[in-house]
Design a protein around this nucleic acid. Structure first.
Lengths: 133, 133
DNA sequence: GTTGACCCGGTACCGGGGTACAGGGTTCAT
DNA sequence: ATGAACCCTGTACCCCGGTACCGGGTCAAC
């Protein structure tokens, strides 16, 4: 699969793929006799994963770590556990905060028939507090 | 509360506050007789909210919308419902994807005692598929 | 009063994540 | 064979979200 096809299937810009190659997020694929890159089919899911993880708030460096975990992670199972535990903890916090945001918006919807000053949307309170130690 | 105190309490850089003021994410507070800004106590939660929402993947423009909803949203309850429904739908998708990521990493942990090639970490598959119509 | 830390507005600069472009080579349908 | 679309490498540029810096004013402890 050539660059443009991968870009099209993964809904990214072709230049983005070259950028990800430079960043090491994509492995350099084989080339055609004419020097064109020939990506394997699984590259589509990989690029989609990168973009979606970005939308969820992860930096490309964080995504690089996730990609390494997806490939099985370090040889040492203990290292994998430690790394994954760290990521899982982060994920749970993100999920909790998004759920709080959702609950807060639902509360607004339930009270939106009131005058604006009397509506209840507690999202600032929910996400604006310092984290507990 | 002066600029540096708010910055310190909210764990941001003072220049960031000036940027948020320029962007309209913070309301211009009252000034001291010497021309210093005097922020109200609730500004701390507001700035914390902005930063946390960013970490969760929202752009400042999206955060601006959320801040408006937090203030009660449009006068029209129908507008509020429509706007909030859109945001809630987005939140639910983010939550679902983060939960999928978590499940995938747990699967890796459960199989990490295997040789690397036989471990199971399906996160690419989970987040790398096109969205269903 | 002095001094260092703070404040201000405005301009310049930076990093992350792209994206555009130039010049030249390749591919494929006509 | 031709021409348009594609590809490549490498360099320049852009947007978002800051952050640094300058020159000058303010504040508070000494």
């Amino acid at each position: 699969m050539r660059t443009n096809e991968l870009a099209s299937r993964a809904a990214v810009h072709p230049e983005t793929l070259r950028y990800y190659l430079r960043r090491g997020l994509l492995a350099e694929p084989e080339r055609t006799a004419g020097g064109y890159r020939s990506y394997p089919p699984e590259a589509v899911a990989r690029v989609r994963f990168i973009k979606r993880a970005q939308e969820l708030g992860f930096t490309l460096t964080e995504i690089d770590t996730l990609l390494h975990l997806a490939a099985g992670g370090p040889d040492s199972c203990d290292r994998v556990r430690a790394l994954a535990a760290d990521k899982i903890g982060d994920l749970r916090r993100r999920i909790a905060d998004l759920q709080a945001l959702e609950a807060g918006l639902r509360s607004l919807v339930a009270t939106c028939d009131r005058p604006r000053a009397e509506r209840d949307c507690p999202i600032l309170h929910q996400l604006g507090q310092p984290e507990e130690p």
